[in-house]
Amino acid sequence: MPIKQSWGSRLFDGVNAAMLFAFALITVIPFIYVIAGSFATQKELLTRGFILFPTEFSLDAYKYIFSTQTLVRSLLVTVFITVAGTLINLFFTCLMAYPLARRDMDFRKPILMLVVFSMLFSGGMIPTFLVVKQLGMIDTYWSLLIPGAISAFNLIIIRNFFQQLPDGLEESAKIDGCNDLGIFLRIVLPLSMPAIATFALFYAVGHWNTFFNAVLYINDNTKWPIQVLLRQIVILALGGIGDSTAMESEVPPPDQAVKMAVIVVSTLPILLVYPFLQKHFAKGVLLGSVKG
């Protein structure tokens, strides 16, 4: 390899890395502010504005939110919904995506059109509520797991990923006596781990942020997920979003620090999911496994 190119290549690497780290820094600073703010006193937050390190260190906000009855319980609810929901999502999405990726499948196009159309048009909140109710899911966790079992968006992209797998694989499996379900389970799924990890993340984050459906479908507030608590605190701290007339500021807003502490507690667990999934994104997983 000529030296000249290596020089240019190295310069490219340097600039590339520098730009990426600069971008990472810009994106992470506000989160540092939220973390710093959660440990700061109300006085400092009010007078100093943007802080990256509190001069006066306070744990009051965390003491307060952990003293509430709801925090731990609703975190557990959220973890349950996230894990169970993501498994259901992946099962149904992949199962449906694979046949749609197969060129020899009949009715492929009408089914896909049906899926796409459902992305663009929706019956709206109330009719969906009525369906969920008629299925008897109101006030059960099923109402948070089943009505969103397949995201049309994810389905279409995962189908695209399946489609890019080499065709030869299927043929050879068929010769080995596998039926289509066998091919899917034994060959397609293992080869698509990076894609599946990605969609596991997408779905998991979706479930983690469950808020509106929980409040709509579940009357029993002991079954509410963490986002309800988070939204209540963040919005109260803002003095009510939008139309505050209904509130008439009768409820004193919680301290800013409490708001930030809740954000930290409710985002950290899901943030930690990504680094664990990352190993599946490593280059060449796909072909590596084919060879092995």
Binding site: F129, Q232, M247
Partner: peptide, 15 residues
């Protein structure tokens, strides 16, 4: 929750 009260009420009424 106060922020979703109207929606929940409408859905409950419709049901």
């Amino acid at each position: 929750p106060s922020t979703t009260y109207t929606d929940k009420l409408s859905a409950t009424v419709a049901s």
